[in-house]
Design a protein around this nucleic acid. Sequence first.
DNA 1: TCCGGTACAGACCGGTCGGTCTCGTTATAG
DNA 2: CTATAACGAGACCGACCGGTCTGTACCGGA
Lengths: 204, 204
Amino acid sequence: MAISYPVPVAAAGSKSGAASPDAGQRILDAAYELFSRRGIRDVGISELIERSGVAKATFYRHYRSKDELALAFLARRDQLWTVDHILAGARSRGSTPTQQLLAIFDVFGDWFSRDDFEACSFINVLLEMGPGHPLGQASIDYLARIREHVQALAEEAGLARPGEFARSWHILMKGSIISAAEGDTHAAARAREMAAWLIEHHQR
Amino acid sequence: MAISYPVPVAAAGSKSGAASPDAGQRILDAAYELFSRRGIRDVGISELIERSGVAKATFYRHYRSKDELALAFLARRDQLWTVDHILAGARSRGSTPTQQLLAIFDVFGDWFSRDDFEACSFINVLLEMGPGHPLGQASIDYLARIREHVQALAEEAGLARPGEFARSWHILMKGSIISAAEGDTHAAARAREMAAWLIEHHQR
DNA sequence: TCCGGTACAGACCGGTCGGTCTCGTTATAG
DNA sequence: CTATAACGAGACCGACCGGTCTGTACCGGA
């Protein structure tokens, strides 16, 4: 999150105020906030341009369609959430690959307890649009990337059958996210417990 | 819940052919097919009434609004899917409570491999409408009912801490459903394996 | 000074949404 | 036979959708 604005070149005099990056970036920032919390369909173009302080024509100069913006949002979500938040957080919390794997659920625990918990955008969009829609397919691809990260950690940890391991692990991640969306505040701890058993069974 | 159907008065002769229940029933049948496969928002009233061969006014004589019909759909889904299909199937496949618990994932395995697999409507609707919407809340309630069924089986099996057990078990159920929605054809077997470990750890 | 590019504002388009209302028909109960 | 009510068909409503287009203002570079 956070979405840092590196100070917009000062911009000197102007009506829009000083802290305003270029239009394309503001649109993507607004899309991230709105799409991640409310899904794609629920957010209209008008709300999007109002939030980003942009004219409609400007919007369509930067993105050919709403779906193209949604695609850009998913890519950004992969970077900010999957890579920068979850994975980086997990790697920094554990000193060994095995500890880093388990730390994923510690990061989840903090994430689940946020008052603005928004669940996983890839799952949300997949279920919202269906696997046949381009956005659904993109979501499936990004979910597969998450599994690849888990698999890489499993290989570092020397676990047996890392591919199978990652798929089982992912079941725990996704299941706990849905439970958190239902309101279960201890979902992460429950998943972590089962995750430890999964590691045991994959130790050579 | 439950929504009893008091037998549609037979209706005897009619132009619409013999196998045509009363309008209210036809609407709910169409809603079940459409809502379960495509979610709530994606299905419009016009498609609903066209599919059920009903006039718009007739629709609104039976249901005050689209949301009220969606609510009735969720109740029906709980009966037909949760109770009649999953639970009854699991109970018939196992002779002991423990076997019946594990058999849930055998039923899931068959379900996942259906070409028209539609995932879990309660999860779909919860993520589609959000927990603040009445339909999202209803979905949360029906998901809790699923956990109650699991908890009852855990108690029959004499497992320790059946409430906690059911919450962990439910994580496996939901996670495997999402994995199946992504296309993992072995998601049920993976979840079943972890479910067996969960049972071991809850055996007194 | 002029010019091309980018920006904002917002009217406008066809289409769809959920929901209301008016019809003419049909079946049944009294 | 008549009164009543449920029905199918579909016009109609205001609201909103994604997307296009026009008009005006401001910018830096030549």
